[in-house]
Design a protein around this nucleic acid. Structure first.
Lengths: 213, 213
DNA sequence: ATGCGACTGGGACGATCGTCCCACTTTCAG
DNA sequence: CTGAAAGTGGGACGATCGTCCCAGTCGCAT
């Protein structure tokens, strides 16, 4: 009812759109459903956005930009965690392994606390993957993931006093891939124990891509 | 034009449907598009299937059942591959690591040879993940993946003369998760080198879940 | 205060969706 | 040979989609 400038309306619509996609899926995110979720009239949608496609393009861009605070602190904060039992042969990078596993477990907590958000991100990726003109959006999304992973891995190595053997970007790519896979299988099975086992294996593999200082 | 019994028509429609989903995406797989791809009339669709939802349900079931020959031989055949350079400390399970890496690289070849199929499977999973009554289809799909992974891992360990420390199913779950993540990131970036690096790391992590005999 | 431009509401348009119906043709058991 | 059953074609239905239009109304600079 109150008058709202177009810029704010865009933000409110994107917010409602993401909420709707997370709850009901991308296919249910029609223009009418979006404005209903935002409590607006249908005309406001096309006053703020040229088309539904343009709306989704901007939604992806905005959501990807906001992904930072959701994942980065998951791997960033906290001193040494308790860590699982050991028994590994190599010494040295034990700390890095524990830090990485701790970060991945923290990500699993984040995933469990808001599974629909990750499911929505996955759905948006697949949407962008279709049609060549939208493919760059998916690439940008995963480049952002890689950036965040890179920061987290750099921080982890620094804290453990280790050094990545190859460029951090390579390990970051591996981390993104593993995280994605763990997310997808957890969304299917909701099996926390299996996800933790995969996280453990992922931390193990990643830690071996670095040398102790 | 020729008369075709309903059973054959069901198979032909499912075949056309999968082809269409792989090429254009699930959203474009309308009843009209499907019958056009199969070269039939629209009435034949609802003569063979009760509804589009029922059609998709059976399509998923059939496709999941046929997934066997696509993935299993990828990890199953072949003696010791060339293998990458080494430098790892631990001895013992070096063979298992190489076998697993070889199998994963073979899967990457399969993925590159028909990326749209894996993309379609991913899309079908997300479709099934929505709505509770279809969720079991996604679970069945990933249970099948886990079965195939289990067979492959058992074969690999046997060939390397190694034994899985935990039940094979646990390692199989990790393999499915890693494979899924590698698939997704490759579909986005089409970066063969990055996928191979992730495959190497995955093989490394998995091989450490077994003990040499 | 006032007028112009930004914003809103509701209704309507054509396209396309899944589904259904019915007249028709082919097949095959008896 | 014949009649019931199985399969086919095309058109139509109501619902819903994205988009558009236009008459109205509010806010704000002047």
């Amino acid at each position: 009812m109150p008058r709202i400038p177009a810029a704010e309306r865009r933000a409110a619509l994107i917010d409602a759109g993401l909420r709707l996609i997370a709850r009901d899926g991308l296919a249910q995110a029609t223009t009418r459903a979006i404005v209903a979720e935002a409590g607006m009239s249908l005309a406001s949608f096309h006053y703020a956005f040229e088309s539904r496609d343009a709306f989704l393009d901007e939604l992806i861009a905005v959501v990807v930009a906001n992904e930072q605070q959701a994942v980065l602190p998951a791997l960033d904060v906290g001193p040494d965690g308790g860590g699982a039992d050991g028994g590994d042969g190599d010494g040295g990078d034990h700390d890095l392994r524990a830090i990485l596993e701790d970060g991945l477990l923290r990500y699993l907590d984040h995933l469990a606390s808001d599974p629909e958000h990750e499911q929505a991100m996955l759905e948006l990726t697949q949407y962008a993957l279709r049609s060549p003109e939208r493919h760059p959006l998916a690439v940008a999304q995963y480049r952002r993931y890689a950036e965040l992973a890179e920061q987290a891995l750099a921080t982890a190595a620094e804290r453990a006093g280790a050094a990545w053997r190859e460029p951090v970007a390579e390990a970051a790519g591996v981390l993104v891939a593993f995280t994605d896979g763990i997310t997808l299988t957890w969304l299917v099975h909701r099996d926390d124990a299996a996800a933790r086992a995969a996280a453990r294996a992922a931390a193990d593999a990643l830690s071996r891509m670095a040398d102790p200082a």
